[in-house]
Design a protein around this nucleic acid. Sequence first.
DNA 1: CGAATCTTTGAGTGGTTTCAAGGGCTGTGG
DNA 2: CCACAGCCCTTGAAACCACTCAAAGATTCG
Lengths: 231, 231
Amino acid sequence: MIFDDFLRHRRGEQILPEDRAALESSVGEVRSLPARMTLVRKGEPVHFSTYLVEGLICRYMDDREGLRQLVAVHVPGDFVDLHAYPLKHLDHDLATLTACKIATVPHKNLDILMSDRPGLVKLLWFSTLLDAAMHREWIFRLGRLDAVARVGHFFCEIEAKLRAVGLSDGVSFELAMTQNDLGEACGITSVHMNRMLRMLKEQGLLEMRASRVQMLDRPALARLRARSESC
Amino acid sequence: MIFDDFLRHRRGEQILPEDRAALESSVGEVRSLPARMTLVRKGEPVHFSTYLVEGLICRYMDDREGLRQLVAVHVPGDFVDLHAYPLKHLDHDLATLTACKIATVPHKNLDILMSDRPGLVKLLWFSTLLDAAMHREWIFRLGRLDAVARVGHFFCEIEAKLRAVGLSDGVSFELAMTQNDLGEACGITSVHMNRMLRMLKEQGLLEMRASRVQMLDRPALARLRARSESC
DNA sequence: CGAATCTTTGAGTGGTTTCAAGGGCTGTGG
DNA sequence: CCACAGCCCTTGAAACCACTCAAAGATTCG
């Protein structure tokens, strides 16, 4: 089923079978998308929300020179732009990083869910709050960590998300992001990202070769968080 | 009434009188708090949410050396930690910046609202999505802007929030934050914040003296956003 | 096999931090 | 009323981290 992975990382929040069935039946269409395709542009009115089944999707904002800052990376099982439902439009852009399979859910179907299944509403709300919590981690990362630590922190986060839906064994996983993408997520240039990856490899913490990431020393990666800019 | 300023910055979302009355009646207690007091610590179970009536409240995370990164600054009219309601606990700390007047709303009262007033649920959800949108602005600010631009961007944002609830006339407003606080919000040191404020003053864009901010050239402040690190 | 994209590396520059010290303001107690 | 403590603001000098610019090597894809 399409929504099998939805909120799978939050076992505390069990989804009732009826609610899940309601979700399934609210799907408009299932589509395959190519890599690096813009789904929604900032400010456009949106009439459906996107659930990610396969692949990677990112949300980003850019300055007037067109330089991107990623604000989120989504993995399968994420309801990507549920935000657009109450807000009616997005304050940022949405694009695929890799080839993706998505399910679109028309907002009018969500309206029906809202009135019919109050329990599900809380779950959907909950799901957007997890996104917000993730945003806060990104703020912390960009505001308080130096480049190496940002990279370590980012990989820890993405690995945890992938593991929750069975796409990581805890050590090694696929991540089809370029060093430029990673830089746009961590607020550093692709050149510097390259140097940070080399540093992590030399220290035996993490290795990335051709879309395959190996977390060789997870505890050490997490510890980078303590070594902030100011120390 | 306590909730007069709730969502006042979003005229599109009118609150029904009955809904507002229901909100008012769900208030547990109204309290005055001193400046620089921690309200909720990360991870603690929370059984009520806080609505800010007067003063400034910040949310922050810190690294192991105790260095703070603010992730949000709240002004009167903000439902500060509605997040804690579906999530049951917070992933960050909550503290007053100035002396505050708050209204606490027990979660059991929110449970009643949830079942009785479905329209209100969407409004509360909406309110947390505005916070998330603000988080994204912060990510952008920290990831893509240099120090001057971050400061300009921050003041533009806080001014807009204050203006929405009548606490700014569009040019001048009270903001009882120290240069250290501002630095913790913008991801720079207090020393550098001092230099940036001097620079803004010398260029006639903004002046801050003893908690009073004067935005002398708002368009120019907003334009700083275009001059990213890479240019 | 060639073109495009991504990765890698070096050298030089610049923005921010750190360290350090002095000045100003406010509140408190003698 | 003055002295003092504490906190915040201010400024300078030096070190360092990350950026820019540039060019060459590797990989992917048509």
